[in-house]
Every structure is written in structure tokens, then in C-alpha cells.
């Protein structure tokens, strides 16, 4: 699930296989969006480990967007984009919030944080994806982007 990857991420490659959704901040929609993303990545020959990693990453980022970005306001919108760039499956999740600095988040693996009940979501997403970034989008909100690079299938 978390093996290092030998191939480079290619963010300059053209976007293909694009699907875009715009949804309200409703927790009941999370599984639907996750199912769409994982179905797309499966169709393009990514491994089961890739599917598991992207399932976790989409789920966590959507929960963050609804709970923290849009503060649980159901009418606040979230835009989700799934697309391919080369061998990378990209996800953009944009909310209407004020954003956060991922580098300012406490490291949950430090001894003083190990027994805290919160603070692991973004850390785990970053550990299993590439090209993770958080950007302010003028007049809109905040966009979190990450990609999952296709891992080599194990040789049988």
C-alpha cells in the first residue's frame, strides 16, 4: 500500500479522463464520491493497493472539506475533480473555507502527540499520495490536490 515509487510524477502532462462533480457538504455523499474515484482508478489498471490508498485519501480529504473547510454547512458546495496525468490519478477537492497550512499541522508521530485522538488524517493522506498541495482559489475557497502514481504490479 505505501511502497516508494521509482517513477516520476508528471504534473505537466495533459489532463485526460476528467470527471467533475459539484456537491453539497453532506456526509452521506462521501461514499458515492469515493466509489466513483475508486471505480475510475480501477478502470485504468491501477493495483488494489493504489485503489485502497486513493479510497482512504478521497474519504479523508472530503471529510476535512465538509467538517473544517465548509464547517458542516450543508449548503456550502464542494467541487471534486478526478483526472489522469500520465500514470498519475489526480484528485482536486475544493471547498469554500479559508484553508490551512499542511506544513503547520502537528506531527502525530511525535511522542507528545501519539495518544491524541485527532490529527492523523492529512498526515496519512500525504504519506500515501504524491504532489500534495493546498491552494487558495481567488474568490472561491481552498483546493486540495493530490495524485496517486501507478505502482508496479507485483510479479507473480
Amino acid at each position: 500500500m505505501m511502497q516508494p515509487d521509482p517513477s516520476p510524477v508528471t504534473p505537466q502532462a495533459p489532463e485526460t479522463f476528467l470527471v467533475e462533480l459539484n456537491i453539497p457538504s453532506d456526509m452521506d455523499l462521501i461514499d458515492l464520491v469515493v466509489d466513483l474515484g475508486t471505480s475510475m482508478i480501477s478502470l485504468k489498471g491501477f493495483s488494489d493497493d493504489d485503489v485502497s490508498a486513493i479510497r482512504f485519501a478521497i474519504h479523508e480529504t472530503l471529510v476535512n472539506a465538509i467538517q473544517y473547510g465548509n464547517q458542516g454547512l450543508i449548503d456550502a458546495r464542494i467541487t471534486v475533480r478526478f483526472y489522469l496525468k500520465g500514470d498519475c490519478f489526480y484528485t482536486d477537492i475544493e471547498d469554500e473555507g479559508s484553508g490551512f497550512d499542511p506544513d503547520a499541522l502537528a506531527n502525530p508521530t511525535l511522542p507528545e502527540n501519539l495518544l491524541k485522538a485527532t490529527g492523523r488524517g492529512i498526515f496519512l493522506v500525504r504519506s500515501m499520495t504524491e504532489d500534495f498541495k493546498v491552494e487558495k482559489t481567488p474568490g472561491k475557497g481552498v483546493r486540495v490536490t493530490f495524485c496517486r502514481l501507478k505502482r508496479q504490479q507485483p510479479v507473480e
Partner: peptide, 16 residues
Amino acid sequence: DFIDSSGIGEIVRSFT
């Protein structure tokens, strides 16, 4: 079959 960061956090809370 699936656990998220809230689930992990709840197991940690249970432990403490």
C-alpha cells in the same frame, strides 16, 4: 475492511 483517521482516533481514545 476500512478504517479512517476518526476510527483510528477512537481506538486511541478507547486505549487511554
